[in-house]
């Protein structure tokens, strides 16, 4: 009886209505992201495309064991992956800084063109980024080397892409150059969304530029920054494939082989479907664990969790 009442209650109807509205969108998520997960079963069989799983040999955890079996290689890849990701996270403040700098521009008319033009590198494919850097900076005949040897800064041409010691940093900086302008969009949007009255209030209190940034702008940006930070922590195993595949060369490859290129090389290039699925599952599990850990420590440290 009371159940029935609840079913007729306004609150229930409202909740049901909300859920009904969300349903189609959730259905899309289920169909395109969760349904294909039946493919995870491939990791537990000696899977051959076209042969139904019922006829395939059960492999148990064979492929998962293999992920760790060639220990030296796997750990070298992990060292590179986590090292590069940590550097990326360390420099993740750069787009925020850029957004704030743009918002503080004295010549306001310049802010839009600057923002537009700074996003250009994002639209250039990695293949071209590689050739541009080779031609402009790295090669013996590059513009940089020609100029630098002429004015005597370099005794002999310096090829930055051959520098094994700095290999990680070089890649991180290339990434910063490529992504800062475009990634700053989201922070600019956050800055725009800040309540104008807050600034006025700060001004009334006699705050200068720096103090206003510190007390108003930064707090306005921080929620977005933290969300993205958590996402990049959980994405530590994904450095992207193309950049490292293209920039890794004979001298630096053992420093630049990352998880994504490793999966490509071992699983996809060699057409080992079960093994590459196992690697994929491994990556998903690690990512979700990282997300959970980061999220709960954010709760402990900042008092709010994000997910």
């Amino acid at each position: 009886m009371s159940n029935f009442d609840y079913l007729r209650s306004k609150r229930f109807q409202h909740r049901a209505y909300l859920f009904l509205l969300a349903l189609p969108f959730l259905a899309i998520v289920v169909v395109f992201s969760y349904v294909p997960l039946f493919g995870w079963a491939y990791a537990f069989f000696d899977f051959v495309p076209g042969v139904p799983l019922s006829e395939s040999t059960f492999a148990g955890l064979k492929y998962f064991k293999r992920v760790f079996s060639r220990a030296s290689d796997f750990w070298a890849v992990m060292r590179n992956t986590l090292g590069i990701s940590s550097l990326n996270i360390f420099f993740s403040f750069v787009p925020v800084l850029f957004a704030i700098m743009v918002s503080q521009l004295h010549f306001r008319k310049l802010s839009r063109p600057i923002q537009t033009l700074a996003s250009i590198p994002n639209f250039i494919s990695w293949v071209l980024v590689y050739s541009i850097i080779f031609m402009l900076v790295a090669s013996n005949d590059s513009a940089l080397n020609i100029v630098m040897t002429k004015i005597g800064v370099f005794d002999e041409p310096y090829n930055v892409l051959m520098d094994v010691e700095k290999a990680w940093l070089v890649q991180v900086f290339i990434g910063i150059w490529k992504n800062t302008g475009f990634n700053a969009i989201i922070y600019l949007a956050a800055i725009v969304g800040i309540d104008q009255e807050l600034y006025q209030a700060a001004e009334v209190d006699g705050a200068g530029t720096m103090r206003k940034i510190w007390h108003v702008t930064l707090p306005g940006v921080v929620p977005t920054y933290f969300v993205l930070l958590l996402l990049s922590i959980s994405n530590m195993l994904s450095n992207g494939f193309e950049q490292f595949w293209l920039f890794g060369n004979g001298m630096t490859w053992d420093r630049l082989e990352v998880f994504d290129t490793y999966v490509y090389r071992l699983g996809i290039q060699n057409m080992e479907y079960s093994f590459s699925t196992a690697l994929g599952i491994f990556k998903s599990v690690v990512s979700i664990i990282l997300l959970t850990v980061a999220n709960s420590s954010s709760k402990r440290i900042r008092g709010t969790s994000i997910f």
Binding site: P36, L37, G39, W40, S287, I288, L291, F307
Partner: peptide
């Protein structure tokens, strides 16, 4: 706030960022 199971649903969606079934299942889909 009235959305039923909204936290769970939110996580349900977020997780899709990290799960990737691979090419063949997606192709079949």
């Amino acid at each position: 706030r009235e959305m039923p199971a909204r936290k769970a649903l939110y996580r349900f969606v977020i997780v899709t960022m990290y799960i990737n079934a691979g090419f063949i299942p997606y192709y079949l889909l």
